[in-house]
């Protein structure tokens, strides 16, 4: 369509040959970007003036967190462990439940098109919902506490691991599956011995990666009352107890870094 609105420009060479040069789309893209940026800036009340005048406040706040309040470490310990437990349990159960859902969503394994379509839709709807929103809903259903957070993390894990897993299953080489059937296996047995060995390393690696992300998410779930360390952050900021907040953030960074490097070590081994 672009070529019709702006016909390609002919360039005549000295020897009489004519080359058509397509009009560049860059100006249009830049224009759209600028318009969107300006519109968004007005919509959200973005103002450099405010930023210029008040930005120092941001750094003042951060400076107030240093040095962190080592004394508050004792109070942080329990919620931190809760956060880790929530993300561990949610990730493990979620990754396990993702298996049957992903199988049901794989067009090359399940022959019923309706089941495949429904499973895929459920997975993409689940994935769309931000974890914090599902945690919020879960607090209403399961009450305040880690249970709600665990459920929210589990739902997200099902969606994330499930999607990546069914994509893997659908891309698997079906030759081995055929061979297993010719040996006299049922479809389930053939799945166990032909498909699982091919997707298992990817599945574990995805689950580990998801778990890493879940630790970060779990840290904020407490904000809506779904257990863990998030509540403390909110309280600390509310009472302007910045050294305590600084301690929480420090502990979080250390925890996340440790978990990430351990999980990365195992993911490397899987390849």
């Amino acid at each position: 369509m672009w070529d019709k609105l702006f016909p390609p420009k002919p360039i005549a060479l000295a020897n009489g040959k004519v080359v058509l040069q397509k009009r560049s789309r860059v100006p249009l893209i830049v224009l759209i970007l600028i318009v969107c940026t300006v519109a968004s800036a007005r919509f959200t009340g973005f103002s450099f003036q405010v930023l210029w005048k008040r930005m120092h406040e941001f750094f003042t706040l951060f400076r107030a967190m240093i040095p962190p309040d080592w004394g508050s470490l004792a109070d942080i310990w329990q919620p931190l462990l809760d956060t880790i437990k929530m993300s561990l349990l949610g990730s493990m159960i979620g990754a396990l439940l993702a298996l049957p859902v992903a199988v049901a969503a794989s067009a090359n394994i399940v022959q019923s098109r309706a089941i495949v379509a429904v499973s895929k839709t459920v997975l993409s709807l689940l994935r769309t919902l931000p974890t914090l929103v599902s945690a919020l809903i879960a607090t209403f259903v399961f009450g305040l506490g880690p249970m709600a957070g665990t459920v929210a993390i589990m739902l997200f894990t099902i969606a994330y691991v499930g999607k990546l897993l069914y994509e893997q299953i659908e891309n698997v080489d079906m030759g081995a599956f055929e061979a297993m059937e010719s040996i006299g296996m049922t479809r389930i047995e053939a799945f166990r011995f032909a498909i699982i060995p091919q997707v298992l390393p990817g599945y574990i690696s995805t689950s580990l990666y998801c778990f890493e992300g879940n630790v970060r998410y779990a840290a904020i779930l407490g904000y809506v009352g779904a257990g863990g360390i998030g509540l403390l952050i909110n309280e600390g900021l509310g009472w302007r107890d910045y050294p305590a907040v600084g301690m929480i953030i420090l502990v979080l960074i250390v925890t996340v870094t440790i978990i990430e490097s351990v999980s990365e070590h195992f993911r490397r081994k899987l390849i």
């Binding site: 030759g175 081995a176 055929e178 061979a179 010719s182 040996i183 060995p197």
Partner: peptide, 28 residues
Amino acid sequence: RRRIGMIFQSFNLVTRATVLSNVLVSFV
């Protein structure tokens, strides 16, 4: 089918697994 073996053009093995476990599959 247990009494009839089948060989394919593209071998149809589980390439990530060891040779032995590919053969063991016969007994499943």
